[in-house]
Every structure is written in structure tokens, then in C-alpha cells.
């Protein structure tokens, strides 16, 4: 699903964020990326989503060589990915329903399908009754769950989450991780960047550790699930 071969990433300012990364994550796996602040966790996810382009090496996502994905094809490529952020990044001028519907509207689903899928996603995160609320009227944990629903509503093959529990208390963080695990169990490949080592150790999943842009763990090809 995800394969990095000798990948380097140097930002425009000459900042070497990733150095010689070799990595394979199998389809349907769930893995964590950990490391200190500035280690390159976010950069790794950004390369996968083509938010930035790597400067050397090869990245293959879902069978697609990212170098071959031209700029005009990026939107189509991203429709196979779901995103989660530390700051939930919900749109506060719309209802919870409309927020979750966004990936489907972008993809041009018909309203009946949109409604069915949004309801299913909200139901799964336990927030169906809040569909018509404004996101600002929700608690932090609820907002994060809306973010999860939005990330999976279009049934992406790959779910990327950057510090999804950064703002949550331990109990809510655990719940959110469990939610990701549920989606993983139905076949979604999940990659989560987090510096909360205690939490991710308890999940008993593969942990990829970065230090100053280099990969620490060498067990690069296990792909547990």
C-alpha cells in the first residue's frame, strides 16, 4: 500500500526533513509514526498525500508512483485518502452533517447517497443525533469524532492522521484510537503520526520511529495488522 524507497525530502529553504527513508506498509495494516517534534512525522504524511513532493527516491502509494502523478491528477489521487488533523479543521459555518458530507460532495455523489453515507459515518462515531448542530457547539472529543467521520465517509483505502489525539484527554484519546482500529478492521489502511508513545504502545501496532529525519526501526517490512 505504501512503499518508500530511499526517499529524501529537502524543503525549499534547504531543510532536510527526511533522509533516506525505506518503508513498506501493507494493504490493510495499521501503523504509527512517532518521534520528537521536528523529527519529520508530518512531512512523511504530507509526502504520501502529495501536499509536498519528495526530492529524491521513490514513493508508491496504492500501486501509483507519485512522481508520475501530475499536478492536475492530484485531486483524483487524494479522493482515495482520508485525513484527520490535530486541530479538527471543521468548517464552522456549516452543520456537522455538511462537514462530514464534504468529501462526498467534492466527489459528486448524489444527495440520496450523500445522506445515506453521512448518516452511516455519523452513526459509527456515535454522533448521529448531532447531525444538525454546528461544530462549535460540540465538545472537543465530539469535534474530533466528526473529523473521523469526515475522514472515512468516502471509504478511502488509506487513512492518514496527524496527531489526531493531540488536544484530547487520555480517555478520549484512547476512544479515538479505538475508533481508528475499527475502521482498520474493515480493511482501511491506517497511518497515524503521534508523539504520545504511551498511548500508541498500548495499541500493540507497528511503530515507525523517526529521529531527525531518519528511520530508527529497521523492521520495515513487517506490516502487522
Amino acid at each position: 500500500m505504501i512503499r518508500f524507497t530511499n526517499v529524501h525530502m529537502t524543503y525549499a529553504g534547504g531543510n532536510e526533513a527526511l533522509k533516506n527513508i525505506n518503508l513498506h506498509i501493507a494493504q490493510g495494516a495499521m501503523a504509527f509514526v512517532s518521534g520528537r517534534s521536528g523529527a519529520g512525522k508530518s512531512t512523511l504524511l504530507r509526502l504520501i498525500a502529495l501536499i509536498d513532493r519528495h526530492t529524491r527516491g521513490q514513493i508508491i502509494i496504492n500501486g501509483q508512483n507519485l512522481e508520475r502523478v501530475r499536478d492536475q491528477r492530484i485531486p483524483l489521487f487524494r479522493r482515495n485518502i482520508g485525513f484527520m488533523f490535530q486541530d479538527h479543521r471543521l468548517l464552522v459555518d456549516r452543520t456537522v452533517f455538511d462537514n462530514v458530507a464534504l468529501p462526498l460532495v467534492i466527489a459528486g455523489y448524489r444527495y440520496q447517497d450523500v445522506r445515506k453515507r453521512v448518516q452511516a459515518a455519523l452513526d459509527k462515531v456515535g454522533l448521529l443525533h448531532k447531525a444538525n448542530s454546528n461544530p462549535v457547539a460540540l465538545s472537543g472529543g465530539e469535534q474530533q469524532r466528526v473529523g473521523v467521520a469526515r475522514a472515512v465517509v468516502h471509504r478511502p483505502a488509506l487513512l492518514l492522521a496527524d496527531e489526531p489525539t493531540g488536544n484530547l484527554d487520555p480517555a478520549l484519546s484512547w476512544d479515538t484510537m479505538k475508533l481508528f482500529e475499527q475502521f482498520n478492521q474493515v480493511g482501511v489502511t491506517v497511518l497515524i503520526a503521534s508523539h504520545d508513545l504511551d498511548l500508541i504502545k498500548r495499541m500493540h501496532k507497528r511503530i515507525i520511529t523517526l529521529r531527525q529525519g531518519r528511520l530508527l526501526t529497521n523492521a520495515a517490512d513487517i506490516g502487522q495488522s
Binding site: I51, P75, L76, L91, L102, P103, I106
Partner: peptide, 16 residues
Amino acid sequence: RQEIEITKLFGATDAF
């Protein structure tokens, strides 16, 4: 700005 960034992340084309 934020909305545009999000929609771009979820695969919106420029036309959209």
C-alpha cells in the same frame, strides 16, 4: 482559506 485548503485535501479540483 481554511475551507479551500480542506476541500483541496479531500480532492477538490480547481474547477470545483
